[in-house]
């Protein structure tokens, strides 16, 4: 069974982190990241060719992490695989002992290093969640054919409270819950006010009773990074207050300021009703996750 699920079932505030597989066939990179994260987090998301850049397969990297004693969350995007391949991978992942799946649309292929690739998008992320849920709970694939053995997976989806149109953001969340999502990991939160508004709406619709929501955070390394995210990453909401705060810190201590902001955000997220955990996406900064978790008062992790 998924350790991640059992932490959430116990009612503990869960901590997940992100691990990006290498742009190569070297397993040691994964081993090193595993060492950094071991004991600091409950589960580790393994990205699936994130930003449409070719990397080691998510499933392979998940298996490597599992061997190191971590509980991996297999991220799977609908960009590269049709419904035949997606369902097949779910069965394979379960057979290999991967117990968590995060169903995503994926970044558009035009963003990555294979812009000439065909984007598949046969299913969308919500349909994908529903397909996995039926495989698990009804033991059947799309179309109704029975499986010899159903996959045993904890099903997740992403949510972006900061995209537009705001009135539809909750509809998307509700659809994902209705489709069978067990947990939700959100886009990086910098605008807590807007996030809290979104959570209030989620509570109003009773969604927080049905799904575990983990707030996403990304520590800022520099004022430049903050500005880049605000300007260049669609659907990323970095308020001016954060930019000013990063700008106000001397270059040498900007990283420290970014960590402080992140710790404060985590602490505030713990106070938001319905938030069941935090998902730390430390971009190229995995070695800082342990310290971040410690400073946020989230150590030790439950067994």
């Amino acid at each position: 069974m998924s350790r991640f699920k059992s932490v959430l079932d116990q009612g503990a505030f869960a901590v997940t982190a992100e691990c990006g597989p290498p742009k190569g066939a070297d397993p040691d990179v994964i081993m090193k990241k595993a060492e950094l994260l071991k004991g600091k987090v409950d589960a580790v998301n393994v990205t699936d060719n994130q930003t449409a850049v070719v990397r080691m397969s998510s499933l392979a990297a998940c298996v490597l992490l599992k061997r190191q004693g971590l509980d991996p969350i297999l991220q799977a995007v609908v960009r590269d695989r049709n419904r035949i391949a997606l369902q097949s991978d779910i069965l394979g992942a379960s057979a290999l002992g991967i117990r968590n799946i995060l169903c995503l649309s994926g970044d558009h292929q035009s963003f990555g290093n294979q812009p000439q690739a065909l984007g598949v998008f046969d299913l969308d992320s919500i349909q994908f969640v529903q397909v996995v849920q039926r495989m698990r709970d009804q033991g059947a694939i799309l179309g109704g054919e029975r499986l010899s053995r159903a996959p045993d997976v904890f099903i997740g989806a992403a949510a972006n409270p900061f995209g537009d149109p705001f009135n539809f953001r909750l509809v998307r969340l509700a659809k994902k819950v209705a489709a069978g999502a067990d947990f939700i990991q959100t886009q990086c939160i910098y605008n807590l006010e807007r996030f809290e508004r979104w959570m209030a709406m989620a509570r109003e619709r009773g969604l927080t009773e049905k799904v575990h929501i983990l707030g996403g955070v990304t520590p800022l390394k520099s004022a430049g990074m903050a500005k880049y995210m605000k300007k260049k990453v669609a659907g990323m909401d970095v308020p001016d207050g954060i930019i000013r705060r990063m700008d106000g810190a001397p270059a040498k201590t900007q990283a420290e300021e970014g960590l402080k902001i992140c710790v404060e955000t985590i602490q505030r997220l713990r106070e938001v009703r319905g938030v069941k955990g935090v998902h730390i996406m430390a971009i190229d900064w995995e070695d800082m996750v342990g310290e971040l978790v410690e400073r946020a008062g989230l150590l030790p992790r439950p067994n």
């Binding site: 960009r79 649309s105 984007g119 998008f121 992403a158 972006n160 995209g163 537009d164 149109p165 669609a234």
Partner: peptide, 29 residues
């Protein structure tokens, strides 16, 4: 929709524009 989504806009829909090309409108908006 650049991602052929049938159940609503992806997280990249901002100000009615598609994340992959701000020149084109978000179909879901």
């Amino acid at each position: 929709c650049s991602k052929h989504l049938l159940n609503g806009p992806c997280g990249g829909s901002v100000g009615g524009k598609c994340e992959i090309n701000p020149e084109i409108p978000c179909a879901w908006q």
